[in-house]
């Protein structure tokens, strides 16, 4: 009995290696289950996309043949080249990119300041102002179209990118709300400690809070990219010069007055989403991290 109580170093090593083995086996079983589930869902999610891809390689008559085929008889890769020859899609994408940069800059400047104010600072009428800010999200955007157009036209800013970028410098309520919620989950101890060290409000925002908000900043960049890339109505209303159109407007040119060239339309659409996906692929590692990893270190 007493013998067994006294564990040797070797015993401990042996035991831990056995449990580690069991642990590793369990871990791999869990991995496998996770991969199986994820792959199944991924396939379901990809079906529509595969169909788009298949359509982009078909001839116009094959798209409408029955029974429908998944694999084109003879893939017509030139649909892609032809789509690019028909309209300056590359130019349109560069324009979109400029708009994305402008908007991202605006959001990154404005949103943290406003969100920090709502989340951390106390001042009269805060709750009312917050609801007021949220309420601007609830108004159907189309209702503001005519008055806004009048304002920008009187400022002689139509046919420029200003109406498409300027609003981002006033902070998007969606992002403000998102960031407010995020900051509210960050313990105040960190702020207090910094304040005792003599840091001012803005120093705390930029030195303490913002670095912890990396995941939410990544979400902001990803969503700004996505929304600006896909926004059709605003550029349509404000821009007049063909060569300043963004890709969202450019894609609409594939819909004719009487019929749509589906194969080219699908080809152009697929190419147009690539930049968004590439950005996301690289941005996502910033989505992971934040205070969770900080907790690990602590």
């Amino acid at each position: 009995m007493s013998q067994s109580k006294r564990l040797t170093v070797a015993d401990i090593q042996q035991m831990s290696s056995a449990s580690a083995k069991r642990f590793r086996a369990k871990k791999w079983a869990r991995y496998f289950a996770a991969y199986a589930v994820m792959t199944a869902i991924a396939i379901v999610f990809m079906i529509p996309l595969l169909w788009m891809f298949s359509t982009s390689l078909k001839s116009r008559s094959e798209i409408f043949a029955w029974p429908p085929s998944w694999i084109p008889e003879q893939p017509i890769w030139s649909n892609y080249a032809e789509a690019f020859n028909k309209y300056p899609l590359g130019r349109f994408m560069v324009n979109s990119f400029v708009l994305v940069l402008g908007n991202t800059m605006g959001e990154l400047v404005a949103v943290p300041i406003i969100a920090y104010g709502f989340a951390r600072l106390n001042f009269p009428f805060k709750r009312v102002l917050f609801v007021l800010m949220l309420s601007t999200m609830m108004i159907p955007g189309q209702i503001k179209l005519i008055p806004l157009y009048s304002i920008y036209n009187q400022l002689k800013l139509t046919n420029t990118y200003v109406p498409l970028i300027l609003p981002s410098f006033f902070g998007n309520p969606f992002f403000i709300f998102l960031m407010v919620q995020y900051i509210r989950t960050i313990p105040r101890d960190l702020d207090e400690a910094a304040r005792i060290d003599g840091a001012g409000t803005w120093t705390i925002l930029y030195r303490i809070v913002l670095p912890l908000c990396k995941p939410v900043l990544a979400v902001m960049i990803v969503f700004t990219f996505l929304w600006v890339w896909n926004d059709f109505l605003q550029p349509l209303i404000y821009l007049s010069d063909f060569y300043t159109y963004p890709i969202s407007v450019g894609l609409a040119f594939f819909q004719g007055r009487y019929s749509v060239e589906w194969n080219m339309f699908m080809a152009a659409t697929l190419v147009s989403i690539l930049p968004v996906l590439v950005l996301y692929f690289f941005a996502q590692r910033h989505l992971i991290g934040g205070i969770a990893s900080l907790g690990l270190k602590g």
């Binding site: 104010g117 600072l121 106390n122 009269p124 601007t136 503001k144 806004l148």
Partner: peptide, 20 residues
Amino acid sequence: EAVEGYVSLIPWMIGFLAFT
């Protein structure tokens, strides 16, 4: 703190007053 709070809202306020 209250003054700083209002200062932080300035960007949003401008947008709200002018464009909403």
